[in-house]
Design a protein around this nucleic acid. Structure first.
Lengths: 158, 158
DNA sequence: ATTGAAAGAGTCTCAGT
DNA sequence: ACTGAGACTCTTTCAAT
């Protein structure tokens, strides 16, 4: 499937299942995929060693703990050579959870999580505007997240 | 901290730790936070019942399994009343992993994961353009993800 | 609410195939 | 490479505080 690593269908099935729900036991996952729990264990160990599997994260509903505002900000840079220094400055702002260097309208694109609109305004107005190299920004506020899911690495019906 | 739920510092510390790494045992996490493993267990059960903790996901490096292209697409709708029907059509495209309804330039904003530029082109040209209600789209291709991290729900140094 | 210990369940290793 | 069983570790429950 992917050229670089030699993963077979079973590897992809394991990845697909465990990306969605990592709470299933090796024995039970083995039953679903018609192999032993020991084989699931060996495969997951292999995937960890290859760096494909990087750990295990708790899925948390951040809205429920007060992070009501998700926003996206497109950033225009004065010069694209300023990218690295701007990245370092943005990394210091804890509300910024993701930063991508992009083609298209903006030079870079960030996602941020804030407790409320007041906090968003503070980050946009006080923090972003004081960073050297940022020419201007455009903000998209998320009013609703219709879905958020994983890539489908394999069709589970074969 | 958050008005609705009555979570204390220990709850936030547990959430912060387990969002980053859910592989630590309750006993070890208890040692770090100066309580017993049993208390960690009780708190996590409470957080699950409250819906704050929604499960456990394997963190996978999708680049390593051939998903080289991450892109963001801003979508202009003909009429915003078409939102729901467009959502249903977009949900059927497996490469679209996230969809937000946004204020600002675009009516909706999606993220997609593709194996290569050819697949991205196919989705943009063949699939998005044939959906009724989409006026036009603007694509940002991610050339580099500088970072991608969790919200900081508590400062771990108190 | 927190604890510590016992019971139950899961992971990990390894010898055999 | 896969299997199954044993050793080990973790989760879960619960009586006591």
């Amino acid at each position: 499937m992917s050229g670089k690593l030699n993963l077979d269908k079973l590897d992809y099935q394991i990845i697909q299942h465990m990306m969605e729900d990592a709470e299933i036991s090796y024995a039970d996952l083995g039953k679903k995929l018609f192999v032993s729990g020991g084989t699931i264990h060996v495969r997951i160990k292999k995937l960890q060693e290859l760096g494909v599997v990087k750990g295990n994260r708790l899925a948390v509903d951040i809205k429920l703990i007060g992070y009501d505002v998700t926003a996206f900000v497109g950033i225009y840079l004065e010069k694209s050579s300023l990218y690295d220094s701007v990245v370092e400055d943005l990394k210091k702002i804890p509300q910024i959870v993701r930063l991508n260097y992009t083609t298209g309208n903006y030079s870079m694109f960030v996602e941020l999580c804030c407790k409320d609109i007041a906090e968003l305004k503070k980050v946009l107005h006080d923090e972003l505007q004081s960073i050297k190299g940022i020419e201007r920004t455009e903000t998209l506020i998320s009013l609703d997240e219709s879905f958020n899911r994983n890539v489908q690495v394999i069709d589970l019906n074969d």
